[in-house]
Measured scan of single mutants.
Amino acid sequence: HNLTITQGKLFFHYNPKLCLSEIHKMEEVSGTKGRQERNDIALKTNGDQASCENELLKFSYIRTSFDKILLRWEPYWPPDFRDLLGFMLFYKEAPYQNVTEFDGQDACGSNSWTVVDIDPPLRSNDPKSQNHPGWLMRGLKPWTQYAIFVKTLVTFSDERRTYGAKSDIIYVQTDATNPSVPLDPISVSNSSSQIILKWKPPSDPNGNITHYLVFWERQAEDSELFELDYCLKGLKLPSRTWSPPFESEDSQKHNQSEYEDSAGECCSCPKTDSQILKELEESSFRKTFEDYLHNVVFVPRKTSSGTGAEDPRPSRKRRSLGDVGNVTVAVPTVAAFPNTSSTSVPTSPEEHRPFEKVVNKESLVISGLRHFTGYRIELQACNQDTPEERCSVAAYVSARTMPEAKADDIVGPVTHEIFENNVVHLMWQEPKEPNGLIVLYEVSYRRYGDEELHLCVSRKHFALERGCRLRGLSPGNYSVRIRATSLAGNGSWTEPTYFYVTDYLDVPSNIA
């Protein structure tokens, strides 16, 4: 807008934040220059609390790290170098490059900038070799853009010569660093050979998330399962459950009422301010606690030095998902009996873990797994792929695949051998790939016309006998059925096997 004052003059007093240069501009645009008398524009009460600059400061050096910015700028000295009290560095987070010096300023003089007072450097006698002032900004957020400017702080001049310097606002972004852990990993099994893994992005990506790394490792069953005799009275049979499938998407929606109208769909109840505040506090606490764990609990591995020492970490090797089922080394339970199943799973520490690289999504279907087997899954978020990966501390989750139908069934015939004193040795093959492992066998036998009897055969007993022995049988026709019990439950009964026990007292003698 054009402003013209045809008559009258300007009068400025007691404006401590208004620089004289701005008042002189007002004289020019209003056409009143030359009308004012000496005392109409006070030299001592206008701009006496402001830094009124008329020179431009330029930054000469900028260096960044993930949490620091090192700045240096060209030296500046007023005509009387004693008038320079120091520099004021202003900075704040700036997602967009549209910041002005006066953003967030209120009537009390406060604003949204963080201000650092910096002492002037030592003055050199040689004007050509003056030290460049600077400042190291610490405690910054990774991968965050900051708006920065600097200006001088000078003393009051009796001659009211307006001098000083100020830089333009520059924008500097800190470097990326390792992201925080992925949030809320959930693993479920939808079949006997697959596990579905879902997660949420890290709360602090500290860069642009480029991919996720998912490692999985087959877990050995508890050692007590191999040692305890679950045929003993009072000892509860062990059981394991597989990871249940995901709930429906509708039930997972946030901010939804727990109660549904019987007449149909209901609208979600909005969260109160107290609920939102509580969630923010919980989120802040979780982030602080995660940072504490990362800094205190997890110790970084030592990389190899120039002395030739090897990095103890196993090298990563990509495998196809079809090879995942046989990740671990199978060892027989008892070496003397080769027909026992290889369900003991000690994992070799030198073995390469299978892994998958996930790009542009937060889910993965891990296939080719062994049925009813526990897996430990390790999830890392990465925001750099080359020249070397920059990934987060791992988040861990466990899951067990679903049982395989008929995996616990005894394959092959049940054979028998009759000894003296009416002892019958029953023999059968253990299931080759049971659900988890076989903890015991149930032997059901009966003599024709009598009630059915049951015998429990422990895992250890089966390994020693290759089956079991029935003792003290009365003469007669017998039928026997056997079924295995694994961590997933009972298998199917075998087809009945028949044998006849004679009275050993009636056996004919070869003595003449």
Results as ranks from 00 to 15, higher is better:
K317D: 13
H371I: 13
S268Y: 04
L470K: 01
W428V: 01
T343S: 09
V296A: 09
L455C: 14
T415F: 09
V296Y: 09
P300D: 12
T241R: 11
T343Q: 09
S262A: 14
T497G: 06
G306N: 07
F215M: 13
C267R: 00
D229A: 14
P312T: 14
E247C: 09
E265T: 13
S458K: 01
K361F: 08
S392R: 00
R301Q: 14
L437H: 08
S363A: 12
I438C: 07
T272M: 04
S274F: 10
T386K: 06
A463P: 06
R301H: 12
D323F: 03
R471T: 08
A335P: 13
T307E: 14
L237Q: 04
G412I: 07
E265S: 12
P270S: 05
E452G: 05
S341K: 13
G476P: 00
G467M: 12
S283H: 14
E451P: 15
F499A: 06
E265M: 08
N295V: 03
I377L: 12
S305N: 06
S341H: 10
F462M: 11
T485C: 04
S283E: 07
L455E: 04
L464R: 08
S248T: 13
S367Y: 04
S392D: 00
F372A: 03
D261P: 10
E221H: 05
N421L: 10
N490A: 04
E290S: 02
K357Y: 14
T494A: 06
I209A: 13
R318N: 05
G207W: 00
S486Y: 02
T343C: 06
K278N: 04
I366D: 00
E247Q: 11
I418H: 04
E258T: 10
Y500F: 09
L277P: 04
N295A: 05
G476I: 00
V345M: 10
A394H: 09
R469N: 04
F298H: 02
G449W: 01
S398N: 14
A220T: 09
P387L: 11
L437N: 13
N383M: 13
V214F: 14
V358P: 12
R318C: 06
L235I: 13
R447Q: 14
S444H: 13
E217L: 02
I209C: 15
Q384H: 15
Q380M: 15
A394G: 06
R313M: 05
Y441K: 00
S305V: 10
S341R: 10
T347H: 04
P338I: 13
F355P: 09
P338F: 13
K357N: 13
K302W: 10
A399R: 02
S248F: 12
